[in-house]
């Protein structure tokens, strides 16, 4: 893994100490953990009584009530759960665009979210797209312990889904970090991500060069993923068309997010630290 990315992970981790992941109530289910779930569980917090049903744990039968009423009654305790964060990182080469701060921003943002999740006593999994989705080694540890964060895939996240989809934890909070710059319908991708998730957040991370129209002049643009080239003469009208295309793409994702109950925001890599308010605005982060 590149040293720059390692440093970005450290920086993100440090930055994330100030935030905590906002856990939606629907996500409070899962494995026994440190948070009270919405279902009865095995914690010590009493919740209710009900009649014994075959299969109930005999340890929770309230023998005092049986003695008084000759009815088998079991005690119900509040379930203790640990919420989970699934970070889905776009591992394509476009996230490591040369001469931009995009790769560092990906690492920093992922580390920030992971740290914020830890602050909210969430577990996390980090999925990196490539030849299918793979978990980062040591992704359950602190971000500085992560390994093999390499942004060099020629596959789009959508293609990676087709090859090997991630195994998300049910009712977890899922955050997709990508530039979203690939052709195709965002709806299918969002449907898969939203399936079984407590909440889905889409963070579009763009380099400033992605967001702003290029300067006037003759340009030979090279696709960072496919290596395809195109010679274009840039003038005011072409720059406007570029901005229109970007706005149209963002609008299609925003519409799809609204359809699937996901929340979306766009951040500029070179301006990441100043844009964290956007993450609070979509109720992904909250000050710790």
């Amino acid at each position: 893994m590149e040293t720059a990315l390692r440093q970005a992970l450290h920086a993100g981790e440090k930055l994330g100490l100030r935030y905590a992941l906002q856990i939606p109530q629907v996500a409070a289910s899962g494995w026994t953990g440190s948070r009270s779930g919405r279902r009865a569980g095995s914690s010590i917090d009493f919740q209710d009584f009900r009649e014994y049903q075959p299969g109930d744990d005999l340890r929770f039968i309230d023998w005092g009530i049986y003695a008084r009423s000759d009815r088998l009654t079991v005690k119900l305790f509040r379930e203790e759960v640990t919420p989970h964060l699934d970070l889905i990182l776009d591992g394509s080469r476009s996230m490591n665009l040369e001469d931009t701060a995009k790769a560092g921003a990906v690492a920093k943002l992922a580390a920030l979210l992971a740290t914020a999740a830890a602050n909210a006593q969430c577990t996390q999994s980090v999925w990196l797209s490539g030849e299918g989705f793979q978990r980062l080694p040591n992704d359950s540890l602190t971000p500085s312990a992560w390994d093999k964060l390499v942004l060099s895939s020629q596959r789009t996240p959508e293609q990676s889904f087709e090859i090997l989809p991630p195994k998300f934890r049910r009712l977890g909070v899922r955050v997709l970090i990508s530039d979203l710059l690939w052709p195709g319908e965002p709806a299918q991708m969002l449907r898969r991500l939203r399936d079984g998730a407590a909440a889905l957040f889409v963070v579009q991370l763009l380099a400033r060069d992605d967001a702003n129209p290029p300067e006037h002049g003759n340009l030979r643009v090279v696709d960072s993923e496919t290596g395809g080239e195109s010679e274009i003469y840039i003038d005011a009208s072409i720059a406007k068309q570029y901005s229109d295309n970007l706005a149209r793409l963002q609008q299609s994702w925003a519409d799809a997010c609204r359809q699937y109950g996901a929340r979306m925001t766009t951040l500029i890599a070179e301006n990441l630290e100043d844009s964290l308010g956007e993450l609070e605005a979509i109720q992904l982060l909250a000050p710790a």
Binding site: D223, E231, S237
Partner: peptide, 25 residues
């Protein structure tokens, strides 16, 4: 008039450009 090389994230935003590239060209 020589072309400056520039790497972009994806040509998806340049699809119209490709069409208008003809115009630009």
């Amino acid at each position: 008039n020589r072309f400056r090389r520039r790497q972009v994230s994806s040509l998806v935003l340049w699809q119209f450009q490709v069409q208008s590239k003809a115009g630009g060209a």
